[in-house]
Design a protein around this nucleic acid. Structure first.
Lengths: 240, 240
DNA sequence: GGAACGCTTCGATCGGGCTCGAAGCGTCGA
DNA sequence: TCGACGCTTCGAGCCCGATCGAAGCGTTCC
């Protein structure tokens, strides 16, 4: 079976710890250089080069040359989704469940707010999803979700344009639940989640941290998100 | 990073050809014995036992003892979704795209109609999705889909009860697009796809083949599906 | 032009894991 | 009770691939 071999090949590509680290690092959607990825993976540049060549040949990563740098990024959204679903499985495993996923002040930031490929994740993102559901602005089920009319009004009032499912103006905007690794509950992914994150960065509500998936919630963003999405004030406090 | 290690572990588990074959074979949702899986993977029972032990330890498979048999199945729907997304990536790769996925009379059946974990896949499934979209019975987008009121009426008239997204009666029924490996276009997955397949088997429209993911479309099913979903007659002909 | 830098290629080493034969354990049927 | 069967464990062989040093190529900066 040709597909089965390709399937195993994908697994083997992801199966090496160094390559896995690289893929995880690229899951925020940015493009990183070979040297940066070597540092992330904890290997020498030669080894990283070999790994990156394999990932590019396997079409998991795409590469662009810029001068003497080579920027690597996740090749397609489908691949990012695949990695997401694999991490969701990995995060629910016994080994990961045994003790808290991460500790320390740096990881407290990750748990609070981080990027998940093209949308927001973490305690804040789950809180936003919770409130939008209870206020009837979105609906989320096991198989998908959508923005309600009330939700569309809210987003439009913020200046966020949500692409419709079928391209037509009158169509419905779907969104996708994405299991949050740290919270173990869904946050909003898909076009809606992407637009929400982009808008939050544009308006300086959130500020990405270079070299990390964590994002800083600015004082401006804290006020805006609390007000607009009716977040509980204690969402900003890191639990012990 | 604990999660990254677990992530790489999942990849390594899937990365072996023998284990990959087993997982693919189990993707129709049935539970198979260790010996059956050894045959599928083309390895000796000892080797299969070792692989299965790893897959069970990694919580990708669950096992049930029945007398001297051990039945293995995909542990959770989340894992089946993960495998699906990996196969979708594998099926779009250059290697798989180079030549037709499969040939021969046995594979013609697979291309026509097969199970995809808990729902139907293949040319017929894609045809059903196409027609339901054009007739306004379902909507499918990149991030999800839903059953329209007209679609709900159709399904209800067939005696298919679709679980609502939020459990409430008035709620909306979401469904999920799933990229068809052989057709390279989406068919219907999620609760709606599952209910549709179950109903088709109950009514003897479809008959699963033991030891294969292919399903036979009975004459009864051919008539019913053509009539109910307005399929083009040539969908039953295998292209050369 | 020369040096520093980013990245790749080549070659050698080495460890992990896949594989199967042989043997052992539990279950089923006669 | 005995043999057949399904499956697992143990052990040894063996191959693949990850890793890094050394060297080479192209780019940038001074």
């Amino acid at each position: 079976m040709l597909t089965t071999n390709a399937f195993a090949g994908i697994g083997a590509l992801v199966g090496d710890p160094a390559r896995a680290s690289m893929l995880v690092a690229l899951m925020d959607g940015r493009a990183l250089t070979a040297t940066e990825l070597a540092t992330v993976a904890g290997v020498t540049p030669q080894t990283a080069s070999s790994h990156l060549a394999k990932l590019v040949a396997g079409e998991l990563l795409a590469v662009e040359r810029q001068g003497r740098h080579r920027y690597h990024r996740v090749a397609t959204p489908a691949i990012a989704e695949m990695i997401e679903s694999m991490m969701a499985v990995a995060a629910t495993g016994t080994i990961a469940r045994r003790r808290p996923l991460c500790t320390g002040p740096r990881d407290a930031m990750l748990r609070r707010a981080r990027t998940c490929y093209d949308h927001l994740a973490g305690r804040v993102a789950v809180g936003i999803a919770d409130r939008m559901i209870t206020r009837g602005e979105i609906r989320l089920g096991a198989d998908g979700g959508e923005v309600t009319e009330r939700g569309a009004e809210l987003l439009q009032s913020l200046g966020i344009e949500i692409p419709r499912a079928d391209g037509r103006r009158g169509g419905r905007a779907f969104c996708r639940p994405c299991l949050d690794w740290s919270e173990r509950r869904p946050h909003i992914a898909g076009a809606v989640g992407k637009a929400l994150l982009a808008h939050s960065i544009d308006t300086l509500w959130l500020r990405p941290i270079a070299g990390s998936r964590a994002v800083i919630v600015t004082p401006l963003g804290r006020d805006a998100l609390t007000r607009l999405f009716g977040l509980a004030p204690d969402i900003w406090d890191d639990p012990i």
